[in-house]
Design a protein around this nucleic acid. Structure first.
Lengths: 118, 118
DNA sequence: CACGCATATACCCTGCAAAGTATACATTGA
DNA sequence: TCAATGTATACTTTGCAGGGTATATGCGTG
């Protein structure tokens, strides 16, 4: 599942399909990649359940299926909890620093403060 | 970035680190993988910014850094919109079904829908 | 200082995934 | 029926990532 989205072309295809379903030829033209490449990646995506296709005459229309990406989203959940906790801690820490050492700052190592936005 | 988390051992390491920082040896033991493997994956993770390390005598303590995973989370955003839109549409559809056929219900297994693809 | 523990790195080997090219298959329309 | 279009697949080649083994490096301790 993670291998699937590791491939940049496949991610591009998925991003294309998020707006609406597309035929192989449309994907081929928009992403400027050779047709066999598109077909092969679509096959991988289909077999992994990321997309499904319907037949429209000679064309095949591919559309997104949400489940696999939802699973990836689910995998991220513990990490989301992790970093939101850390943003909170950082903000509390910086708040205390700001009032306890308003004029001096050591900057011994990487005390460079990045933008603490989420 | 996506290549990084495509590797199962690396995902395991990241999942371990989400609870607290760990030394190489601790990771090695908990995941039952050879030490060079752990070190090599940690190197990849460090160079990609997923983890950072501090020195504690002969040990090195590795801890999670949130940014790269946050970017992956951000990449998922459009897809989240996609599938929630679909859930909404499905729910609206089912709502209409519910009021258009209000009296007839096989009140065996109540409103259990036949596995609607979310 | 020498040893032992903890970690990193060098090296080789193997498998596999992606690209490219050519070709097969299927559907439509004349 | 044939040609054209649209898509899938077969085959080969190549690069690279990951594993295994051995060894190097660094840091405490007797």
């Amino acid at each position: 599942m993670f291998d699937i989205i590791a491939e940049p072309n496949r991610r591009a295809i998925l991003s294309l399909l998020v707006s609406s379903q597309q035929s192989v030829g449309e994907i081929e033209r928009q992403l400027r990649m050779p047709q066999p490449t598109v077909s092969k990646h679509l096959r991988v995506l289909r077999e992994a359940g990321f997309v499904e296709s319907t037949v429209d005459a000679q064309r095949r229309l591919y559309r997104l299926k949400p489940e696999p990406l939802q699973e990836i989203d689910a995998w991220l959940a513990p990490f989301r909890r992790f970093w939101s906790a850390h943003v909170d801690a950082l903000e509390r820490h910086l708040d205390r620093m700001d009032q306890s050492t308003p004029t001096k700052r050591k900057d011994k190592e990487k005390t460079t403060r990045p933008k603490p936005r989420t």
